[in-house]
Design a protein around this nucleic acid. Structure first.
Length: 586
RNA sequence: GAUUAGCUAGCUCAGUCGGUAGAGCAUUUGACUUUUAAUCAAAGGGUCCCGGGUUCGAAUCCCGGGCUGAUCACCA
């Protein structure tokens, strides 16, 4: 196509080839400029109404919205000669626009409609419109546009999703593209936006709830010389001027407890934590949790707070405590079911392990087909049995209490039962939702617990905790009895938005890096003595780099380029083999 | 890390036995003044993920690699 190759030349400075769509749009851009229209104007464009309001209020009062001004994006167009319909989207919703040639262009000059609107505007462009609202013969609320202004020209085509009777056609569903180009996902899939609005609302509900109780929102270091507060492998980084290793935090527990020592009654932090572990639909290397510590409370008290707060989240987001999650309806209404860990295991396996020693536990685990390895201590064995036999079966929110001491080096010893700690997790939809304890404030006990963690580390448990001397130092000055909790915000968001993957509740989930195509510039090719006109043909023949080109088979290349000369209608004499050889040799 | 499925036009996807690479939407040109997955007519658009092998001939068969999804293992 002559026009295309001509246009390609106009963009020859771009080192990659442009698709036809992109060339057409760049050309429209130039034409707009030559018509004296700025495709990217600087000044503010005032809107006086949101589309959502129009859709809501207009049916009841047709006298409303007779002079509206709105900005938004063109999502689709139906052009019928001198009249057109446009689907138009702002941040709140979509509405139809009606463009009529003689209204847009009352005088003789029809350029603004025939040329600018019909030919130079595209799906994806951002415009501002003035007009009045009416209802079409088909019964659709529509803005009759009297004036419009281009606010931003789009150079790439948007995926076009069409819809009829709630059925989607050509939906933009490929998860990889959706996550890598989340902005596109947000534009064309309105339900995605709702998920993130819910997530934000969820955090606001918690923040308000905790602020009203007088707790202080704080921030603690993400870069830590020692990582602690959880069992996980960290990310490691390096500080240049201190010349020291720093870790990205895996939890913020130890810092928040230092603040309790410092005299705050309640502190909380919404924190990004980082764990260097596998990735799947429940795990992202960086994730968010809220941690809360309240002085002079215990884990019983914290359980009540947790169910109250999460019930409130469900109410605020859904107007009810019942939330549809996959096939299940989960009811967050208080009070939640409570099991001790031993009770839960007995309930689901029929085996009472509460009196067993390490060897008996090992046998039981084997009998239940729970995978174990020699590095596991007694606590880890119990935890594995629970995780394998119980967790997935707990759909409705359930508190599991009283964990083995080996698994919980930061939790206080159980007030009644030897070998256990005062700890609970809430499990919901088969997954842990939060984790809480009566915090250990006995500095001598804490030191011993860290030391036994070090023992586990020596046995090969690479998630065991390291000893934090300064934290122990803080405890030695005296920490009040304290209840602490951590709630996974991503996990909770998944449940509250019925998302089955963590990637759906993170704007930018971690992805493998895309293979970067190594591309030589036109100048690189010119340095070999290749005339400019041939460069697009060489790229077309599959040579993106000078290195690849120089290894090419001369005969094959001769044939290919000859063919491409015809195909691309290059207006140059046929290639001579001496020339080609000299290019290859450089 | 293991198993498995997939990768074809800007998007969603067909592609038979190995024989000239297809459809719808999008794009371009034209018709059309209340359409709505607008319609009608015509045109353009491809590194069939990459590399190698078998073959007269590979999107298709074989081997290797990349990426993505799903499941499993570890972790929240």
């Amino acid at each position: 196509m002559n026009v295309l190759s001509y246009l390609c030349k106009n963009f020859k400075n771009m080192s990659r080839e442009l698709s036809e769509h992109e060339i057409v749009r760049r050309n429209s851009l130039k034409e707009l400029i030559s018509l004296g229209i700025d495709p990217y104007p600087a000044e503010e464009y005032k809107s006086n109404v949101a589309i959502e309001e129009i859709l809501k209020n207009f049916p009841e009062d047709k006298s409303l919205y007779q002079d509206v001004q709105i900005s938004g994006r063109i999502m689709s167009r139906r052009i019928m000669g001198a009249a057109s319909f446009v689907e138009f989207q702002d941040s709140t919703s979509r509405i139809q626009l009606y463009f009529k040639r003689d209204d847009i262009c009352p005088g003789e000059d029809k350029t603004l409609y025939n040329t600018v609107f019909k030919r130079l505007l595209d799906i994806g462009d951002i415009i501002g419109v003035k007009g009045y609202v009416f209802i079409t013969q088909m019964g659709e609320i529509t803005i009759h546009v009297t004036e419009y202004k281009i606010l931003s020209k789009a150079l790439k085509p948007l995926p076009v999703v069409k819809e009829k009777d709630d059925k989607k056609y050509d939906a933009f569903t490929d998860p990889e593209q959706r996550y890598r180009q989340r902005y596109l996902d947000l534009i064309v899939n309105p339900s995605v936006k709702k998920i993130f609005e819910k997530r934000s609302q969820l955090m606001n509900t918690m923040r308000t709830f905790l602020n009203e109780k007088g707790y202080l929102e704080v921030e603690t270091p993400i870069l830590q010389p020692l990582y602690g507060g959880a069992a996980a492998r960290p990310f490691k980084t390096h500080h240049n001027s201190l010349d020291m290793t720093l870790y990205l935090r895996i939890a913020n527990e130890l810092y928040l407890k230092r603040l309790i020592v410092g005299g705050f009654d309640g502190v909380y932090e919404f924190s990004k934590d980082f764990r260097n572990e596998g990735m799947d639909r429940f795990h992202n290397p960086e994730f968010t949790q809220i941690e809360l510590y309240v002085a002079y409370k215990d884990y019983e008290w914290m359980m009540n707070l947790a169910e109250e707060m999460i019930e409130k989240v469900a109410m605020d987001l859904h107007g009810t405590t019942k939330v549809q999650v996959g096939k299940n309806i989960i009811d967050f209404k208080r009070p939640w079911k409570r099991f001790t860990m031993f009770e839960a295991i007995a309930h689901f396996t029929g085996i009472d392990i509460s009196e067993m020693d390490e060897d008996q536990l090992r046998e039981t685990a084997a009998k239940l087909n729970v995978p174990i390895d020699p590095s596991m201590g007694k606590g880890k064995l119990i935890d594995e049995i629970f995780g394998e036999c119980c967790e997935a079966q707990l759909i409705q929110p359930t508190f599991i209490t009283d964990y083995p001491v080996e698994m919980s080096p930061l939790a206080k010893k159980h007030r009644k039962v030897e070998g256990l700690v005062e700890r609970f997790e809430a499990v919901c939809n088969g997954k842990e939702l939060c984790n809480a304890f009566s915090e250990l404030n006995d500095p001598i006990d804490q030191r011993q617990r860290f030391e036994s963690q070090l023992e586990l580390g020596k046995r090969g448990d690479d998630e065991s905790m390291v000893l934090d001397e300064d934290f122990l130092n803080a405890l030695e000055y005296g920490m009040p009895p304290t209840a602490g909790i951590g709630i996974g915000i991503d996990r909770l968001s998944m449940i509250m938005t019925n998302s089955d993957s963590i990637q759906d509740v993170l704007f930018f989930p971690q992805m493998r890096p895309q293979q970067k195509a190594n591309i030589s510039t036109d100048a690189d090719f010119k340095n070999l003595g290749i005339p400019e006109v041939w460069i697009p043909a060489i790229r077309k023949a599959g040579f993106n780099t000078v290195e690849a080109f120089r290894q090419a088979d001369a005969n094959k290349l001769m044939n290919d380029l000859g063919g491409l000369r015809k195909k691309m209608k290059l207006d140059v004499p046929g290639l001579k083999s001496e020339d080609l050889e000299s290019w290859i040799k450089g």
